[in-house]
């Protein structure tokens, strides 16, 4: 899983993983992937299709991302974040 095949499709608004965003960038969630605690858990934290996310910080060596969804900050492991598909805006 070194390179994600979707990573070069971001120019024309196609869905890309959340992990391709840089701090300060914003995007719209288009699909939620799997998580050990299920999609339900994402939604109860405010992560839903159609929501706008902003990256607050990323950590080196594929560490967790801190994102802002409607004023709530969530820390999310890289392995989960790469299953969340977004569209850059």
């Amino acid at each position: 899983m070194m390179e994600n095949p979707l990573s070069d499709m971001n120019s024309d608004g196609k869905p890309v993983p959340l992990t391709t965003l840089l701090p300060g960038e914003k995007a719209k969630i288009v699909a939620l992937g799997r998580s050990i605690r299920g999609q339900h858990h994402f939604r109860t934290m405010g992560l839903m299709e159609g929501k706008i996310v902003e990256i607050i910080a990323t950590q080196p060596a594929r560490g967790p991302l801190v994102i802002n969804v409607e004023g709530t900050q969530i820390a999310i492991g890289w392995g989960i974040a790469r299953h969340i598909l977004i569209q850059k805006i």
């Binding site: 998580s35 858990h41 934290m45 967790p64 801190v66 900050q73 820390a75």
Partner: peptide, 12 residues
């Protein structure tokens, strides 16, 4: 066993 990833709310 499994070591899942972090998913945590960061309160203000």
């Amino acid at each position: 066993g499994e070591s899942p990833e972090l998913l945590l709310e960061v309160p203000p």
